[in-house]
């Protein structure tokens, strides 16, 4: 089960560390007749970095989008002790559950800066506040590569730069918990390393992160716990069985 991670600094998302940030019970997702998620039951504690791993097509992204209220689902989702209304993405965003979705889903004809500013929409609808708020600056500061590209149209960025923009947009939302779905999908290894360095920084800040990854070796480099998803069933978060932070041995068992 979720345990506190020694050495983690209390950061933006770490208030009340150890409390349950997200509790999911008997979540079920179906697309018509096809049941993508049969049963997902797990919890994530505040300030923890948890990997959700499993083979492709086993329901990880469906769980993420359902928890974020973006698709219809059955079951019970509690966010910081509050029961989430079904299919209400705005509710989740306003309470600080932010999804960085698979394939980024940026606004391709807008600038990088506008994309990041729109991350603030959940807590302000004032452009001036969004521009002046320290959160936006911190989000950009995590990715210095973006600073010279803030006026560039997002659709013209490379895949890695788009992923950084999507992460910065997620951070601008003042997240209390981040769900990051396949951040390295389609990226070259060197770019994936850069993205993971940023994720490690988020963990160091003590943020609550659920990282969805197909590659367990990579995920366990930064995550303390694992939620396994197999054939539409998600199992409760558990600590990696192998000691230390290296993920190779754990990955082998998965």
């Amino acid at each position: 089960m979720a345990v506190s991670s020694p050495g983690s600094e209390r950061g933006p998302g770490a208030a009340g560390a150890g409390d349950t940030a997200l509790a999911v019970r008997d979540l079920q997702v179906a697309y018509g007749e096809f049941i993508a998620v049969e049963r997902a039951t797990f919890s994530v504690k505040t300030g923890h970095c948890v990997a959700m791993i499993g083979p492709n097509g086993n329901g990880k992204s469906s769980i993420a989008t359902a928890v974020a209220g973006l698709i219809a689902s059955r079951g019970r989702v509690e966010l910081f002790g509050e029961l989430a209304p079904r299919g209400d993405a705005v509710w989740a965003v306003k309470r600080g559950l932010i999804l960085v979705p698979e394939r980024r889903r940026l606004f391709p004809q807008m600038t990088v800066h506008d994309n990041i500013l729109l991350g603030c929409y959940g807590w302000t609808q004032s452009l001036r506040r969004a521009q002046r708020d320290a959160t936006t600056e911190e989000a950009i500061a995590l990715f210095p590569e973006l600073r010279s590209r803030l006026k560039q149209i997002a659709g013209t960025l490379s895949g890695g730069q788009q992923q950084m923009t999507a992460l910065a947009r997620g951070l601008a939302a003042r997240p209390k918990a981040l769900i990051i779905d396949e951040p390295c999908l389609g990226l070259a290894e060197v770019v994936a390393r850069r993205v993971y360095a940023a994720l490690a920084e988020l963990k160091r800040q003590g943020r609550t992160v659920i990282l969805i990854e197909e590659n367990p070796v990579r995920a366990l480099e930064i995550c303390d716990e694992v939620i396994r998803v197999e054939r539409g069933i998600a199992y409760e978060a558990s600590k990696p069985s192998a000691p230390g932070r290296g993920g190779a041995s754990q990955a082998a068992t998965l």
């Binding site: 973006l70 705005v90 965003v93 979705p101 889903r105 940026l106 606004f107 391709p108 929409y121 947009r169």
Partner: peptide, 9 residues
Amino acid sequence: DTFGARVVG
């Protein structure tokens, strides 16, 4: 991007 718009609330 309708989905992206919902993602940011």
